[in-house]
Design a protein around this nucleic acid. Structure first.
Lengths: 233, 233
DNA sequence: TTAAAAAAATGACATTCATCACCTTTAATT
DNA sequence: AATTAAAGGTGATGAATGTCATTTTTTTAA
């Protein structure tokens, strides 16, 4: 749990940065960013940016987890991506020179830094390795989304749930998965009631354990099996 | 219809290039690319590249249309994107340094140029405007895919069909939409039979006209209305 | 600690849509 | 032109899953 007292994190000592996109910066560059960035405490369910607003910079998660989502016609959220400490949010929209087409919100108390657009773009212009890293990142994300689309089109909800749980295991690393049923349903792309029923099935099959809202995966291989779509009909 | 006799297109005279990503090149750059690229005739349903193979360069559509798709666990295609003349295919995978996670195939006879990876990356390194254009392109595509995912999760097949037809109108410009029912179903993300039934509905409602396999939109506003999701229930 | 609010869970039901089987039309090939 | 293959289309059926109503549990706030 994050202390309520806001701690200001410097990039130079930021542990999350080390093996992330900004991990390869030289000390000059780090210093420069440090002098321009701000660092903020976010409580749970607080927005980083809204769909439709204009990008002014990028967000760097020092601690906490963030959901990126899009609202459908009836206002229902579809979660596109869940990010954890060390990852960056919102740089996609900076290149498009258009308003955000998705929103971002914390899933828990978080510590998140903000780098103004100008500074980040300057940094990119002068650092080919960073540019390549970002290109790579964008490409991989495109690939993930193609898979996401295919899953949505062809897999059953049960299969998608298994697939999502495998993704969430990575996001929550060794901790229990800690998402509201509604968020989880909005990630899987189903109704909350359906999600709850399917979680119950998995629990009864011994694949997961449920402690009120926290969820522990007991049998990852079974999940892989289910997600793969070997359904007999 | 494209003549079977293969015509070699030069970038310098390529009409499709003008208002596309490579539209801003100087004559030196164009000459350089021209000397390295190849230009090939593709018949209908011919693969540009396969899922799993390794990217060796980018493809530039001079004439024709191309589908980009991913196969699900049972081998069923999900079409992610349909591209037309002037657009480029396959540069996403070049940055990821990983094999293609999607495949690409012509939907009709096409004329498509190939720029080797080396040359394209060199060009990018020395041309900041091109780099920015590509970043922008990647970002927009990410945005499209977020919308695609949301549509798949929240819209009915009828709504998605209407949405897809609106997209296809842009791909086919003033021409009738000319896709097999199977491809169209794989784009919408539904079974071929369901797609056929829903097309019939739209025909009976006077929204579209069907000439064997060609499809003409008669009432675009109605499609927009349907796609928007104003369904009464 | 209790009351109120929010989240999770369960049941009943309706509907969409995939599937299978089959038929018809169009396109390709000899 | 005739034959075959492929694509388009139709009908019947059932399972998956969304929706609505209600209850139970957990969390939050008084």
């Amino acid at each position: 749990m994050l202390e309520k007292s806001h701690k200001y994190v410097t990039c130079s000592t930021c542990g999350a940065r080390k093996n992330a996109l900004l991990g390869g910066l030289c000390s000059d560059e780090v210093g420069n960013i440090d002098s321009q960035k701000s660092c903020n405490y976010y409580k749970k369910n607080q927005a980083l940016f809204l769909e439709g607003s204009f990008p002014r910079g990028v967000y760097c998660i020092n601690e906490g987890r963030v959901k990126v989502f899009k609202r459908g016609d009836e206002g229902k959220e579809q979660i596109i991506h869940i990010l954890k400490a060390g990852e960056m949010v919102g740089f996609r929209a900076m290149f498009s020179e258009e308003p955000y087409t998705v929103g971002a919100e914390t899933l828990e108390e978080s510590n998140i830094c903000f780098i103004p657009k100008e500074d980040f773009l300057n940094l990119m212009d002068n650092n080919a390795a960073l540019r390549n890293g970002i290109m790579k990142e964008l490409s991989k994300e495109l690939s993930h989304r193609a898979e996401f689309i295919t899953n949505m089109a062809q897999k059953s909800v049960r299969e998608r749930l298994a697939f999502s749980l495998l993704l969430l295991m990575k996001v929550y690393e060794n901790e229990p998965i800690n998402l509201s049923r509604e968020d989880m349903a909005n990630f899987v792309g189903t109704a909350t009631e359906t999600l709850i029923r399917l979680l119950k099935d998995l629990k009864e099959e011994g694949v997961i354990e449920i402690q009120t809202r926290k969820l522990i995966v007991l049998n990852q291989n079974k999940l892989i099996d289910i997600a793969g779509g070997h359904y007999s009909h």
